[in-house]
């Protein structure tokens, strides 16, 4: 049985851990509000852009001179998986869930005989993917230098990815990120970036003939890279909100666990103390009786 001094030390150490998790929880709660607001503010642009791309794509999509970002290379042999992670831990299973979804997808693709390449955003998850698929990581984007990845970072990532696409490094690109549903629920999500997948519901039903300045193809060629950037930007924002949400929940749990542990240790400490006192009393009394 642990002696009193040891128990005291353990209680103190759990208490200081609890202070850290508590602080981290409150920081995450404050950051979550900001990240959530940013994610919501970015939605109108992404939605409207999607609507415009959808209506243009339905017009141009069938023709032969459709941009390659829309029509793809005609093959689907090499897949690029864009995995967007955070830079920091202490956020529960947030990073692990995204990586797990990406690895699962990669396994299915490999089983179908496709080549899989990875492009990583953020510091986390790199080690796991490098170990599971050695040599499959073709690029990564470092976000450790910036506090909150914004539109400029999204643009840099999109440019890097499109450059690789036009260099013929891959045929299909899929983005993995965590969709922010609420502070308690973050859903790992995959989204096909290249070729652009157009949801049927996004096509607005307009009967009027629209005039284009310049022509449809030129607008679309200008629009598609921009759409790619916006989709990545949206994913980065969703990820930030998700990370803070996951962090808040995880730290809340940790704080509560630390509290339980402290209670248990305190009871054990008190019991040991009483046992020690009782033993001493018994010794004194039996000593006195012996006289």
């Amino acid at each position: 049985m642990a002696n009193l001094k040891e128990l005291k030390g353990r209680i103190a150490s759990v208490k200081s851990t609890q202070k850290i998790t508590k602080a981290k929880q409150m920081v995450a709660a404050a950051k979550l509000r900001k990240a959530q607001a940013a994610a919501e503010a970015a939605r109108p642009y992404a939605q409207r852009l999607e609507g415009v791309v959808a209506s243009l794509a339905s017009k141009v999509g069938a023709s032969d001179n459709a941009p390659r970002l829309l029509a793809s290379t005609g093959k689907a042999d090499t897949h690029l998986l864009l995995v967007a992670n955070g830079d920091k831990g202490l956020s529960g299973a947030f990073n692990a869930n995204i990586v797990k979804a990406a690895i699962l997808k990669a396994r299915t693709l490999i089983a179908e005989g496709k080549t899989v390449k990875f492009y990583l955003v953020g510091r986390k998850g790199r080690a796991v993917i490098a170990r599971t698929f050695p040599g499959a990581i073709v690029g990564q984007f470092d976000t450790t230098a910036v506090r909150t990845p914004g539109y400029d970072e999204a643009r840099a990532i999109a440019k890097d990815v499109t450059d690789r696409f036009f260099a013929g490094e891959f045929d299909v690109a899929t983005l993995f990120y965590s969709h922010f549903r609420s502070a308690l629920a973050q859903v790992p999500t995959e989204q096909q970036l290249i070729p652009v997948s157009v949801p049927e519901s996004a096509v607005p039903a307009t009967g009027a003939a629209v005039e284009y300045e310049p022509d449809e193809e030129t607008i679309l060629a200008d629009l598609l890279p921009r759409n790619l950037t916006v989709q990545i930007f949206k994913a980065l924002l969703e990820n930030q909100a998700s990370e803070q949400g996951a962090s808040m929940t995880a730290m809340d749990n940790a704080t509560r666990n630390a509290g339980d542990l402290i209670n248990r240790l305190t009871i054990q400490y008190n019991r040991s103390r009483q046992a020690a006192i009782t033993t001493e009393l018994v010794e004194i009394i039996s000593g006195a009786e012996a006289l």
């Binding site: 307009t206 003939a209 284009y212 300045e213």
Partner: peptide
């Protein structure tokens, strides 16, 4: 400021899309 020249938009303008 359209890429092919400025254009004014009033209520009831015909549908147009321009960079």
């Amino acid at each position: 400021p359209g890429s092919e020249g400025d254009f004014g938009v009033l209520e009831g303008h015909a549908p147009i899309m321009s960079t």
